[in-house]
Amino acid sequence: MRKSLSSFRPSRRLLFAAGTAAAASTVAAASASAESVTGLTSLGNYGSGVLGAWEQQARAISSEAQVRKTRENDGVFMFGDSIGVQDGPPLARQLSQLGISVAVHNWAGRPVTPAVDALDTWAQDYGLPHRILMSVGSNDIFTPPAVAAQVDRTMQIVGDERTVYWVNVQAARTAHGPGVQVSDQRNSAWINLQLAEAQRRYENLRIVHWAEHLAAKPNRLARYLRDGLHPSMPLGQNARNGLIVDAIKAG
């Protein structure tokens, strides 16, 4: 029998396993690499680098009319980053086929904190539907400890009567050397552990287990991610959006 999302409690082993196939073969090299030697100065305190300016990057934000329509129809508000910019349109089409309207606030490069700021603004300006999708966290590999407080803040904004669907993260960016990839993976697991801990505190928080899905079969990382972070199209995109749709259908 298939377990419900609320009953699935990911183990630390599963969370850290996501991405291991991409990074394991380079761990030894990473320990001796220039990145691991020069380390924290150029790569930031957590080894993944420093978050760059994201405010001028690509964005996809629904019109006020679409936001109000989605609120009135009790659809889904989505807050995302570059993955949301890429995968949001086909996801909206899939949900539309189920009679669920979507309003999006997706912004490439954006970490969790300003995404929650956007959620707070929409809550004040329009009110919220009963389903909120948070597709953010990948850009928090640069400062992973920031996530826990923002998850708490999200749950305070939405209240007890709404459901939050949060997609967990997997990053081991192939454009960077092995030291950064190992740091990316460690920081992704750190973020996912914070989400898993938050799920224990909030009954209305649902984790969409993207990282575990990628870890379930060794070939998925290479096939479903085009750069160690963004879903490939259409294979990875379909897989990730499918997980989201299943989670929303499950309630």
Rank of each mutant, 00 (worst) to 15 (best):
L5M: 12
R173Q: 03
T20K: 08
L193D: 11
A30M: 00
I244V: 15
S183K: 10
G242E: 09
H209R: 12
N106G: 10
W107I: 07
P145W: 02
R131P: 04
G127W: 01
R206Y: 13
W210Q: 02
A196H: 06
H209I: 05
D87E: 15
S101N: 14
L91D: 07
T26N: 15
Q150M: 01
G228N: 02
D160H: 06
V169A: 10
G109F: 00
V112Q: 08
M233F: 12
L43W: 13
A18W: 04
R220Y: 14
Q97L: 14
G179Q: 04
W107L: 05
N45R: 15
R162P: 01
S11T: 14
R68C: 04
P114L: 05
S101I: 10
E197T: 06
A17Q: 14
L51R: 00
R2T: 08
H213E: 15
W210C: 02
N219R: 15
A23C: 15
H176Y: 15
V182W: 08
Q56I: 01
I132D: 03
S25Y: 14
D227A: 04
L221D: 03
A211I: 06
S135M: 14
D184V: 03
R206I: 13
P114Q: 04
S36I: 12
R2N: 09
A211W: 04
N45S: 15
R131Q: 11
E72V: 12
R223H: 08
S25N: 13
V182A: 14
D140A: 09
E72H: 15
S188T: 03
Q97N: 15
Q86S: 10
G19T: 01
G49W: 00
L5P: 07
L14T: 09
